[in-house]
Amino acid sequence: SSMNLEFSQLSMLPHLADLVSYSIQKVIGFAKMIPGFRDLSAEDQIVLLKSSAIEVIMLRSNQSFTLEDMSWTCGSNDFKYRVSDVTQAGHSMDLLEPLVKFQVGLKKLNLHEEEHVLLMAICILSPDRPGVQDTSLVESLQDKLSEILQTYIRCRHPPPGSRLLYAKMIQKLADLRSLNEEHSRQYRCLSFQPEHSMQLTPLVLEVFGNEIS
């Protein structure tokens, strides 16, 4: 029953909301450094950021994910997040099971930092996000980044790790689309309840949407 009480109160929600809010700011700062991103219209920048934010957060969180105990460990054990912590923030295994699988698969690619960064940039500059106006401009920026990534792998990533690496990375972007969809579903559910949406931050509400308004 204490477990039920903890769940109904979503004891980790305020903390996770803060963490996600902070991460969104990092994603915005990162996007602004991608060549060409600032040249897009403000509307396209906003559409791209809102649609990719959760995917980039999932990607960047891989740096703190450890296969040792399948947790996100930031520095010391004081900042260790387990699946159970995320369920206490209102998410279910329908998201967390594929998310952990995704983290394990991505970790096993042993990406260089350069590849990791390029993958996040390619994710943000996806021309097929709903609402993008200048799709051809976004596409040309993404194409340039993909070329750089493929060249990097060819020249700097030794075999056998480089084998099919680019294809595997693109598959990760596909995985992120379904994780994004499931996250949206669960977020919508959560934000429908005022007692929970009031624990979110203004930035989270703006980026993921505010159902109570």
């Binding site: 700011q25 403000a42 906003i46 950021l49 930035l203 703006e206």
Partner: peptide, 18 residues
């Protein structure tokens, strides 16, 4: 549905450092 203005996002995109 109310019109989205994305004021926070606009602000964070405009400011020089995040």
């Amino acid at each position: 549905k109310k019109k989205e203005n994305n004021a926070l996002l606009r602000y964070l995109l405009d400011k020089d450092d995040v």
